[in-house]
Design a protein around this nucleic acid. Sequence first.
DNA 1: CTAAAAGTCGACCCGTTGTTCGGAAGTGTT
DNA 2: AACACTTCCGAACAACGGGTCGACTTTTAG
Lengths: 212, 212
Amino acid sequence: MNNMSTKRNARAKEIAQAALRLFARKGFTAGSVEEISAEAGIGKSTVYEYYRNKEELFVAAVQEGADQWFADLEMIGSETQDPVERLYRIADLYLEDHGADFTEKSRLFLEVVSQTLLQGGIFSDQRHLILNIYQRHIRTVVGFLLEGVSSGRLRPEIARHSEKIAINFLAYLDGLVMHGMVAGGQVDLRSQIDLFLKYFAPLLTIERTEAA
Amino acid sequence: MNNMSTKRNARAKEIAQAALRLFARKGFTAGSVEEISAEAGIGKSTVYEYYRNKEELFVAAVQEGADQWFADLEMIGSETQDPVERLYRIADLYLEDHGADFTEKSRLFLEVVSQTLLQGGIFSDQRHLILNIYQRHIRTVVGFLLEGVSSGRLRPEIARHSEKIAINFLAYLDGLVMHGMVAGGQVDLRSQIDLFLKYFAPLLTIERTEAA
DNA sequence: CTAAAAGTCGACCCGTTGTTCGGAAGTGTT
DNA sequence: AACACTTCCGAACAACGGGTCGACTTTTAG
């Protein structure tokens, strides 16, 4: 029985991952259930054994994507204690795989935003789900900042505005990735971020190097 | 004859504007041609007298949106000469109408980005069109920065990185608007921008007020 | 005034796709 | 081997929506 349900869960997860890949590639409306089933290597009707409908499948795909994202974020938290280094690593995460074609995460993120506000979109009546993911995202970065203050590497004043700072930093990264998308390789995201952090990081850290 | 074609153009523009509104509200795939025709107060088939197909209509809608946007941007350029003031005004433009529900421009922008990268999307083979709009956008802000340098209000070093700076600034604004969208009023965009510009503007201007 | 041209639109066609259904194929139990 | 039970899927259903067509109305021009 337990064996049964774990096997079932594993199957459900496989389908969700296939859906994640396809939705990221083609979007919610254009990505058909049949294609997803093909991607997962099963029949179309089998999908409906695991998910009531396409929307539920999309939600599962988003959850799957979010889980992967937070796993990466937490990895950063455990691998380095230096707050500035952490910010650089987050930026790396955003740029990851940004070669020939874009990472699944960015595309799916875009699709989520669309579905969140588009009238009649999937999340228009399930905002709380997205809001949870969003707030966890912010909270993680706020945590990094506050830890940086406690450990004495960041200026104490940061603590007061930690949430605003986190939001601004992430907003910048999200926006930059979008620019990279529309500009399609015309913009060197790496050097954009380097320029940004070159001025941003000193605003946060204690050691002020006034001598240029 | 001339009268005829201007009348025809006017009609085409009306339809494009209706399309702009609807696509912004429901997205490209979910917004049907029938709804657009209803929004424009005409029959569905009439739309096809002015646009070959739905994609062409979408392109027209995007052009329409871009035209409005650049008109606003140029207005800023003519209304004030102060470069920092101009940046603030651009930020205002992004926040404009961000009350109950979001401005058409932001939503359409999102849809454009989607359609630009989604495999099989409209702009996947018409990237140049989007790229033109994008570059004009960047170039306008670069122009503001360079004018600021010439007039002696911005630091001369700015000139070297003017494009990178413009991109970073606009990327931040785009990203922030997206955050506002997903967070749905939980984030006070105005105060986010104020915090950002409070640290950003002094990096650009000549008069350094080291005494806090 | 009239005939051709342009504009309009209701009705229809048809491909796509989400969803259901009935039964076949596997799995475990006794 | 026979049974229940789950898993799987091919085929059919139904709705939706992009696009076409032919007839009707309005405009233009001589």
